[in-house]
Nucleic acid binder design. Structure first.
Length: 432
RNA sequence: GCCGAGGUGAGGUAGCUUGGUAGCCUACGGGCCUGUGGAGCCCGGCGCCCGGGUUCAAAUCCCGGCUUCGGCCCCA
């Protein structure tokens, strides 16, 4: 055996898996079309500075970064957002708004592999830029719901929140942005006690601490009741109240579509990425404890990359994770199996005829395989059967003299002699 | 980066405790079978994760590494 294998964290997709992945990708692409998102393709390799610009220390330290032969410092993209932001800040800066962009592809992070996490992974990514309206946020949530349903996933749950709630409370206390970020990060890690202690030592009031505590505990149940309670808790913190109202508006829009979407609101929900400024959410499938997708609003991002201030909301879906969730739910792909044909020349000298006929069939858009192992008919038919081929076309001298071949239906085990010029018609019209 | 459990032909496994010829099933290639199979029989190729150590002798015991699967961290 050769000692070669895939590098840690990288994997092969064998036909079955490749098919599943391409299926999800096609659904993601279709969803993009249905919602009016234009697909763009950006490079896997970008300048290190671009990718590091906005990424936190954590992501930066896990980038595949290296110098190319021209001594440029580059890295493999760990996410799409930087590339898209680069485009919006430069080439696409004068595009009419709203601007809806979609991309799908592989990303790279030097993490320790574990359930649903690999060093090379695939995402579909949707960004809606130019609108600060709640309907834009709602669209991103709906779109995610559409995608999950279109691949056949059942019972997905959305976890939603709004970074403005906690931030509103913290900033009211005049805590520095940096401290706020740290507190938010601790909250994201669910280290609530540490978060509170940090806020307290930075000068947050007793009232603030109590408020945050109550917010953290506030989750689940009826969405609108939760929102009402949150509004009560943050009374007096104007920006926090605004945030709750905004979240409420988005939730209303989503729920009023009539589509059944399972949503849980967590008032103290924080997502790690520092650039979120508004609504945030993650999607889960019940069998899988990891987020299948996540996103939210980031109104500052484009200006961080040197563009015009542009409100934006977006989402990324982990294709690998969706695959995992589908496998756990035993989702069956609804794809049509195409008929396949095996061409078997009986004699060595008939193989030219086999290739010729195969070409004719392919030109007529019929998938064909030619027996290339030099097998005898018996073995060749066995092989065709094992591959669940629909038809075998057997080319023999006897029939060829009459410009004909034998077409055998392998499922029915019936066969008939057919003129070469009639092969296409016979197969296309299921005449056997 | 840290922690835990594992690694025997391509896949699934036996052997490991108690060191001594690596066995089985499936899959793969071929023959029996010079034009009709899905059966059977027979033959063949392919293996102890890697590197050290202990020993007359290591798949087996010891150490280190790699790697797989999970957990932490982070995230999709």
């Amino acid at each position: 055996m050769s000692a070669f294998r895939t590098v840690r964290g990288m994997r092969d997709f064998l036909p079955e898996e490749a098919k599943l992945m391409k299926f999800i990708e096609s659904k993601a692409r279709r969803t993009a079309q249905l919602y009016g998102y234009k697909e763009i393709i950006t490079p896997v390799v970008e300048s290190y500075e671009l990718l590091a610009a906005k990424a936190g220390e954590e992501i930066r330290s896990r980038m595949y970064a290296f110098k190319d032969l021209g001594d440029r410092k580059v890295a493999l993209r760990p996410e799409f957002t930087a590339s898209v932001a680069r485009l919006i800040a430069t080439t696409l800066r004068n595009e009419p708004k709203p601007l809806r962009l979609f991309c799908v592809g592989s990303l790279y992070r030097y993490d320790e592999p574990q359930q649903g996490r690999f060093r090379e992974f695939w995402q579909s990514n949707y960004e809606l830029m130019g609108s600060n309206k709640p309907e834009a946020d709602a669209e991103i949530v709906m779109l995610t719901d559409s995608l999950m349903k279109s691949v056949g996933l059942k019972n997905c749950v959305f976890k939603m929140g709004h970074v403005g709630v906690l931030r509103g409370v913290l900033s009211h206390e005049k805590l520095e942005d940096k401290v706020q970020n740290e507190v938010m990060q601790l909250m994201d890690k669910k280290q609530y006690d540490d978060a509170l202690r940090l806020a307290e030592s930075a000068g947050a009031s007793e009232k603030c601490i109590v408020t945050i505590q109550k917010l953290v505990e506030l989750k689940g149940g009826d969405v609108f009741e939760t929102v009402e309670k949150a509004k009560e808790y943050v009374r007096g913190y104007k920006r926090a109240v605004d945030a709750v109202m905004n979240l409420c508006e988005i939730l209303k829009l989503v729920s009023e579509t009539g589509e059944k979407i399972d949503i849980t609101v967590e008032a103290g929900f924080a997502r790690g990425l520092e650039y979120y400024t508004g609504m945030i959410f993650e999607v889960y499938a019940p069998e899988t404890p990891i987020a299948l997708g996540g996103g939210g609003r980031y109104d500052r991002l484009i200006e961080l990359f040197g563009g015009e201030p542009t409100p934006a909301v977006g989402v990324a879906h982990g294709i690998d994770r969706i695959m995992l969730a589908m496998q756990r739910q035993k989702t069956t792909l609804r794809t049509e199996e195409e008929k396949t044909i095996m061409i078997i020349p009986i004699k060595e000298k008939l193989k030219r005829e086999a290739l010729k006929i195969s070409r004719t069939l392919r030109d007529a858009d019929i998938p064909v395989e030619v027996e290339v192992m030099g097998r005898k008919v018996t073995k060749a038919l066995e092989d065709a059967d094992r591959r669940e081929t629909s038809y075998a076309i057997i080319i023999g001298e006897k029939e060829l003299k009459e410009d004909a071949v034998v077409i055998r239906n392998l499922k029915k085990r019936e066969q008939r002699v057919v003129k070469i010029e009639n092969i296409i018609e016979t197969i296309k019209n299921n005449k056997l």
